[in-house]
Simulated assay, not measured.
Amino acid sequence: MRSNFVAELKWRGMLHDVMPGTEEHLLSGMQAAYVGIDPTADSLHIGHLVGVMMLKHFQMAGHKPFALIGGATGMIGDPSGKSSERNLLDETTLRLNQEAIREQLSRFLDFDSKAENSAVLVNNYDWMKDFSFLDFIRDVGKHITVNYMMAKDSVKKRLDAEAKEGMSFTEFTYQLVQGYDFLYLYQHHNCTLQMG
């Protein structure tokens, strides 16, 4: 049975912003949404709480939650809210962190039942690892302007704060990889919402 997920988030004070039409979209039938988690450690922390709670309420409302482990983005490092570039992790460490996080998430989300809305854990490394640099910049990069990317608050703050150091190309491209996650999940899992 589906309930009104948007109304639930409003009631709980967990809704800051929402795209117009989202509530109606969710009321039209079971939908899929994801929350991204960078596996930079082998444990969730307090900063993940709201995202995990949203996934739980999403599943309780009768929808299909996707927990996106950012293996690829974790290798790059999210520039938002950071004063310096993250240490880059190797695949072995990221996979160990992924399994530990899945174990923790399974205390809140139903991954194992045969229910139509059972949760799914995905890792963006799995679809990014074989993407060549040339294919990526040709197939993804051509659809977004540098002006748009530069206007992002996370980029502006880093560039303003670190006029001497700046931001690495690796960090700058993070938003392209993150945007591709949404496209991939939409094309392969009919996932229509990102939450976070």
Rank of each mutant, 00 (worst) to 15 (best):
S113I: 07
V140N: 04
D112H: 11
V122L: 02
N117W: 11
H143L: 13
L121R: 00
V122T: 07
S118Q: 12
F133H: 10
K129M: 14
W127C: 01
L121W: 04
D139C: 03
F136Q: 05
M149T: 07
W127H: 05
V140K: 01
V140R: 04
V120F: 01
M150A: 08
D110V: 04
F111R: 00
M150P: 04
F111G: 00
D139M: 11
V122E: 00
S132L: 14
D139V: 05
V122P: 00
Y148I: 09
H143Q: 13
K142Q: 12
M128C: 15
S132N: 08
A119Y: 00
W127L: 09
V120M: 04
F133K: 03
H143K: 15
I137T: 12
V140M: 05
E116K: 14
M150F: 11
R138Y: 08
D135F: 10
W127K: 00
D126P: 10
S132G: 13
S132E: 06
M149Y: 03
A119C: 06
F108T: 02
S113R: 02
D130V: 13
A119S: 00
D135P: 07
F136R: 02
K114T: 08
M128D: 14
S132K: 15
S132H: 10
D135N: 15
T145R: 12
N123C: 09
A119L: 02
K114W: 00
L109C: 04
D126C: 09
D139G: 09
M150G: 03
F133W: 12
A119F: 01
K114N: 11
L134C: 07
V120A: 04
V146W: 03
F108L: 05
K142A: 12
V146Q: 07
K129C: 13
K114D: 11
G141S: 09
K114F: 07
M128I: 12
K114G: 03
L121Y: 05
D110R: 07
F111V: 06
D112F: 11
L134N: 01
F136M: 09
D130Q: 14
S118L: 06
T145L: 10
G141C: 08
V122R: 00
Y148C: 03
F131C: 08
S118M: 04
K129W: 10
A115Y: 02
A115V: 06
S113H: 02
I137C: 02
L121S: 05
F131Y: 14
K129V: 15
N117I: 13
K129D: 14
K129Y: 14
V146M: 07
F133P: 03
N123A: 05
